[in-house]
Design a protein around this nucleic acid. Structure first.
Lengths: 261, 261
DNA sequence: AAGTGGTCTAGACCACAAC
DNA sequence: TTGTGGTCTAGACCACTTG
């Protein structure tokens, strides 16, 4: 082991190339990387249990404590969920208590549960060519095939969110308006189930804007009503961008909530 | 030890009351709580080193690994910063790389460093009585003394943020406009230094709004320009609210950036 | 009872910083 | 050289879930 101390039984991890800068990293980081690769390759699917800590320790020939620390970090990254007595499970957007993890819009009074689920109306779902902007966000080339979805989310019958989604055409080949509208539960859960694409993190840029006539009409609001513009890029494993989303949020009855630590 | 296994040398932690529901919690959580109390009581000040893991282990009569896990959580909560080879330090808002931890407004191009520090202009700083709304946010009673500060932050000479701060009158007795304007560095660092108040977390509610005439004038923008309304409640230890802040952000040259995990 | 994650300990050694 | 945090191990036992 060039990259970690104690090689009592030769952990089954790769040696760094000799000569070059020897990418030092602790054993548990290497284990984390290996588990990550298995997650990514789909060896264990969202919602399924991964092998027990003891099993993984045996597989990688390290102590249980080292595997534990690796999994601790994966759990901190929300890639995996630990359940005492049951096992460790691949995280998924399809669960009750983690649903709409990325949606920070909250009703001004009460919580999201009291409000009930959003009604989805898909206005459009078509195959287009990536604009320069969309291509940059999705790490594609201008003109590459992209699927664009436009939809409105309503709460209690009130149109509240208008958003456009852009998805890489390759990974999401065959996505239809019916799929986008009909699936029960978070759209990201549908992406996992139907396309094997799991979003693990996202970045948002938020602005205050006025809607153009078309947008105002879709939300049934005046053109003078200021709206929250939320541009999101969602990433799957390995920081690969898989979705660009531009949303307009009404904030007269809702607000965007953020916790700072 | 009623709440943890292994009492080899009787860890110096309190026993839960007999009879009542025995507040089970692991040893390291109890240690974390004890360290937290010392932080809160000011036994170690922001920026100072806390005792080494070995010292704390000896003090609390537990193993170093247990102290380590307690400190790990404190570090994850940003209450403390670990520095290999040097020690563990009480976190502070006065450091380069953690400065403006709570300010999520970024210039559209470049990062915050390229933009340089904000210029502060304090428009007002006065003692007032808490309105019902302010009192609720700060866990005070309506009419309690509160200090209100109104200021404008400019970047490169352009007024970008207009904000009002409300602070509990008791804890911030004697705060002057000169202090608010003159201090170099984050306002939260000044709070630590001058008033011994350290903000550890915050919640924000964000909306899109149009400014009233006075607000538009202070920011030198049209009343038709949509602005980001950011309402923040900042908390010190123990979830005690110590600041209510209402900001209006220009988002034509900047954006509010948020990372979702 | 068996299996899983969760806690705790003790001891060894590494990496880094300061003297 | 010393002291600090960081890593790794091995073993014991606890808490929770399932059969």
């Amino acid at each position: 082991m060039a990259t970690s101390p104690h090689s009592q039984a030769d952990p089954a991890v790769a040696e760094p190339a000799a000569g070059a800068t020897p990418a030092f990293s602790p054993l548990y980081q290497q284990i984390k990387e290996l588990i990550l690769q298995s997650l990514q390759s789909g060896e264990w699917k969202p919602g399924e249990a991964i092998p027990s800590e003891m099993d993984l320790a045996a597989r990688f020939r390290v102590s249980q404590g080292t595997v534990r620390k690796a999994i601790d970090e994966l759990a901190a990254d929300n890639l995996v969920i630990r359940r005492q007595g049951k096992g460790t499970f691949v995280a998924t957007h399809a669960e009750q208590h983690v649903r709409y993890r990325f949606l920070k819009l909250m009703p001004d009074s009460g919580d999201r549960d009291s409000e009930g689920p959003a009604q989805r109306a898909v206005l459009d779902c078509k195959r287009v060519r990536a604009s320069a902007e969309v291509a940059r966000a999705l790490a594609l080339r201008t003109g590459d095939p992209v699927i664009q979805v436009r939809r409105v989310l309503s709460f209690g019958g009130v149109p509240t969110i208008l958003e456009d989604l852009w998805l890489p055409g390759n990974a999401f080949k065959g996505l239809t308006a019916e799929q986008a509208a009909g699936y029960q539960g978070p759209t990201y859960a549908m992406f996992e189930l139907e396309f094997g694409v799991r979003m693990v993190r996202a970045e948002e840029k938020i602005r205050a804007v006025l809607p153009d006539p078309q947008q105002a009409a879709a939300l049934k609001v005046s053109q003078q009503m200021p709206l929250l513009s939320v541009e999101r890029i969602a990433y799957t494993y390995n920081d690969v961008p898989m979705e660009l989303r531009r949303g307009l949020y009404r904030t007269d009855t809702h607000h965007y909530r953020n916790d700072l630590n």
